[in-house]
Amino acid sequence: MFVCSRDIQCIKNRFSAGYVSLQDQNKIWTLTVSPELRDKTPLVMVHGFGGGIGLWIQNIDRLSSRRTLHAFDLLGFGRSSRPTFPSDPEAAEDQFVSSIEQWREEMGIKDMILLGHSLGGFLAASYSIKYPQRVKHLILVDPWGFPTLPTDPNEMRSPPAWVKAIAAVLGRSNPLAVVRAAGPWGPRLVQRFRPDLKRKFEEFFEDDTIMEYIYHCNAQTPSGESAFKTMMERFGWAKRPMLLRFNLIPKTLPITFIYGAETWIDRNTGEKAKQLRPDSYVHTLAIKGASHHVYADQPGIFNEVVEEICDAVD
């Protein structure tokens, strides 16, 4: 499988990368940065749909300057194992959450600051419902799958053009089937659907490195992708909306929502979460000049915000 070695070469802080074997025999590709900074709660970062640890390249050094940082490829994505997920949405979600907990046990992490983006935010929230004692602060970055599907079409936020294009091409196929079908032309297809992604990382890569990385993250067996399809109602909504069970997270666990001010995700979710947790810390903020990929659109501001949250923990 393609390894985006140039991503790792860009990291300045001390790091290690390798597989963590789980009890169920699956393996999770893991990056650990600044392992020597053990006096503070580690930050664990969970990527979104179709991504991998390489997409955090603009955030890793800054966010690991004062504490250990762990980032991993979700089960079924990137370089991690690609098992068959259940066809039931609740069971598929549980398998993701179980893999995160097994990973935590194998890593020997007592507790953590848990940050998840998009699908990773959905799974981080689900993990926090089941294992709240392991999370000191939950950071949800443009989280997917929180609101219920509106019955009134006028209430739906319009998804970006690339989402509409993929939906039109694919029909009932897995979301990224067209990328795999393109074979060696896959990176060009990624570029066609998402020309914005190359611009987001141009400070690090002037060539097509990031496009090739995203392609190879999704060119393998569509394991996590199939699980995502099982869990989604439409591309923007979940069959089991997180807001309907968000109150199951203990009120003692502080939560921060970080949105891009121009995101296609419903930003009202954060405010609704506040209403569901009136006696708990729930903070919502939007970063100007950023869309769904907040961490890449405005990495400097994003890093500053997350670092401030982390410093408030310890």
Rank of each mutant, 00 (worst) to 15 (best):
E106F: 06
T84S: 15
H47W: 00
G108C: 10
Q102C: 14
I109Q: 12
T41F: 00
S81W: 07
F122V: 02
Q95F: 01
S118D: 08
D39R: 08
G120T: 00
S81I: 10
E105R: 12
D88P: 10
H70S: 08
L123G: 00
F77G: 05
P89D: 14
P86T: 05
H70C: 07
G121V: 02
G54K: 02
E106W: 00
I57N: 13
S87W: 07
S64Y: 06
S87F: 10
S64Q: 11
L114C: 08
K40E: 03
G52T: 04
F77C: 06
G78V: 01
F49L: 02
L119T: 01
R104L: 15
Y127G: 00
D61E: 15
E105C: 06
A92D: 04
L37A: 14
G54Q: 04
G50S: 07
V33Y: 09
M112R: 08
V97L: 11
L74N: 06
D88L: 05
R66A: 03
S81H: 02
L114H: 05
H47T: 04
P42Y: 03
T84V: 14
G50I: 02
R104Q: 13
I57E: 10
E105L: 14
D111L: 10
T84Q: 14
L63Y: 01
D94N: 14
W56I: 07
F122D: 03
L63R: 01
F77M: 08
F122P: 04
I53E: 03
G120I: 06
F72A: 06
W56A: 10
Q95C: 04
F85R: 02
Q102A: 13
T41C: 13
G51L: 15
S81F: 05
E105N: 11
G52W: 01
W103Q: 12
G120L: 00
E105A: 04
F77Y: 15
P89H: 11
L69Q: 06
T41V: 14
S80D: 05
G116A: 01
G116M: 00
W56G: 07
S81R: 10
A92H: 08
W56V: 07
G48S: 13
P86K: 07
V33H: 04
P42K: 07
G51Q: 15
R66L: 07
D61I: 03
R79E: 03
G116V: 08
L123E: 09
T84I: 09
H117P: 06
W56D: 02
D111P: 12
G76W: 05
R82V: 12
